[in-house]
Amino acid sequence: MTHPVEVTDLTMQYGPLVVMRDLTFTIERGEVFVIMGGSGSGKSTLLKYLVGLRDAPSGTVRINGEELAASDRDARRRNLRRIGVLYQGGALWSGLTLAENVALPLEELSELDADSIAEVVELKLALVGLRGYGGFYPSAISGGMRKRASLARAMALDPDVLFFDEPSSGLDPISASRLDDLIRALADSFGTTIVVVTHDLASIFRIADRALFLDISQRTMTALGDPATLRDTPPNDEVRRFLTRDSGSST
């Protein structure tokens, strides 16, 4: 059985600057997998490699067994249909209403008629707690609502894998916790594989089945496992300091 996400010997690079190297891991179907690390460690960059926004200089990224970089346009499009991405700021299309945002992927990538699309849109918005907000433009709603609307759009095509980039950033603790609950519910109820990039410790311990630590000083991954276990028996000092919020300062 293929894994929803398989990364093998991936090197991440900005021009000549190698950000991370030798990244190898697989993500199991239905798990919530967190990619964590300090600021600048390349978490969001790794997400870009995973969803095909960047092509790897070396190594491979396979989504549902297929390598996005090596796919032709139709195969890539078919494979992308099976993933959804929630961006840090929501990335809703500002010229479209929330309902139109959710409907666009369905109009472009499915054979559904207009009535069916309207029903799907209503359902997805209701699932994220935005029933009745379909006619609103993104600029007219709060940051938390924008993220939830973006999640509704990401879920529009019932993807197998959902990627979240810093879902709790910019949210108050209650909104962040509500989003965490939603992420957990998606994995538990729909069996969706969830990949979350975050450095929010509260979220990590709340939602993650497994977590991967990107160590900027080593320029590679240095820990992979259940976050509570990693905290209790850290494999190295960086992981311990990260998971216990230890700044290393004596004052």
């Binding site: 969803v51 926004l53 890539r76 078919r78 992308l80 249909r81 991405v85 990538l109 973006s150």
Partner: peptide, 9 residues
């Protein structure tokens, strides 16, 4: 927003 288009194919 452009990335959102690209990752939806």
């Amino acid at each position: 927003e452009l990335d959102a288009y690209s990752t939806l194919g």
